[in-house]
């Protein structure tokens, strides 16, 4: 049984925002809603690092734990999805999520997207797969088409990986080994001391 996971390799992420616009492109999310964003730490300083963040599809998802109407469900592969017809847009999940993944449209609601919106791992929602209604409410359902999230598939440097956690880990482990274990970038020692 696969467990779908995202992993962003900070050594490869260049903050190009390719993942962000790929998500916009595939899911047609409106201006102001960012299912995925790139966060840069120590911007402009030695040790600057960027990572791309979206819903992490937690195994024990805090959003689901706090949802007062239980609109979340998890697929066999560990993708956390939700039913917008049940969602009341309360924002409780936003408190609970450690990654700031849940998004709420501003007024002038994007139709049903007045409800909470978040990354679906390109798995759509509880409507007929790849139907017009699913596309409109939840965006693309690539999983049903045998494809993986477009953000990762289009990542400029293959920093963002998405798929079965074991396969993702294999690729990442290989890279770490090749790099000799720790980041090789200028200022690392200054920023984080030697041998960290």
């Amino acid at each position: 049984m696969a467990r779908m996971k995202f992993l962003c390799d900070a050594e490869r992420c260049i903050e190009c925002n390719g993942c962000v616009t790929a998500c916009k492109n595939e899911n047609e999310v409106p201006w102001g809603i960012n299912r995925r964003r790139v966060v840069t730490l120590d911007d402009g300083l030695p040790g600057e690092k960027s990572i791309s963040v979206a819903c992490m599809h937690c195994t024990d998802a805090p959003c689901a734990a706090v949802c007062p109407v239980d609109c979340f469900y998890t697929t066999e592969d560990g993708v956390v999805l939700h039913d917008k017809d049940l969602c009341i847009g309360c924002g409780y999940c936003f408190y609970a999520c450690p990654f700031g993944a849940p998004q709420y449209p501003q007024k002038e609601a994007f139709g049903v997207r007045g409800k909470m919106d978040k990354c679906t791992f390109c798995g759509g929602g509880p409507e007929p797969d790849n139907s017009a209604i699913e596309k409109k409410m939840y965006g693309a359902n690539r999983l049903a088409q045998g494809k993986l999230p477009l953000c990762a598939e289009m990542c400029a440097t293959k920093a963002l990986l998405a798929g079965d956690g074991d396969m993702v880990a294999d690729i990442y482990r290989e890279r770490v080994l090749k790099r000799g274990g720790r980041p090789n970038s200028w200022g690392w020692e200054t920023a984080y001391r030697k041998n960290v």
Partner: peptide, 22 residues
């Protein structure tokens, strides 16, 4: 969870589905 049933759940996790994604 009492929302609509996601048809993805019927195929998700099946051998064919997993193989395709791999």
């Amino acid at each position: 969870y009492k929302g609509a049933k996601d048809p993805l759940l019927a195929v998700d996790g099946t051998a064919g589905f997993e193989e395709k994604l791999s």
